[in-house]
């Protein structure tokens, strides 16, 4: 195995066109953020797939754990009153 330290991993986000949000497209290794942007250009936008790139060191991302997904997301499951269909209005009513 090589003795050189592995380059850090960056997560890559790309805005495909103005008006759309940046979307996670994958990750790549680079020595710093500038190189991550340059490499992301070559790896992820060879066919004009983007107009803007964000790079974030993977180690800097804090994420929910899948084993705690229940307690985090399930409380919303029984709150049907947050949805429009919960409210009963006469059918002849328009534009509401």
């Amino acid at each position: 195995m090589s003795t050189t330290q592995e380059w850090p991993l960056y997560e890559i986000f790309i805005r495909s066109k103005n008006g759309l949000e940046h979307r996670h497209v994958g990750s790549l290794h680079a020595t710093d953020a500038q190189m991550a942007i340059e490499n992301a250009r070559d790896v992820y936008t060879r066919r004009e797939e983007g107009v803007s790139i964000w790079v974030v060191p993977s180690a800097e991302i804090t994420a929910t754990q899948s084993d705690e997904a229940g307690e985090i997301f399930q409380p919303a499951a029984d709150k049907v009153y947050r949805h429009p269909t919960f409210y009963e209005l006469p059918i002849e009513l328009k534009h509401i």
Binding site: T4, Q5, W7, T31, D32, M35
Partner: peptide, 9 residues
């Protein structure tokens, strides 16, 4: 090259 790039950063 990998080492030099890391050292540069």
């Amino acid at each position: 090259v990998r080492e030099a790039a890391l050292a540069y950063s």
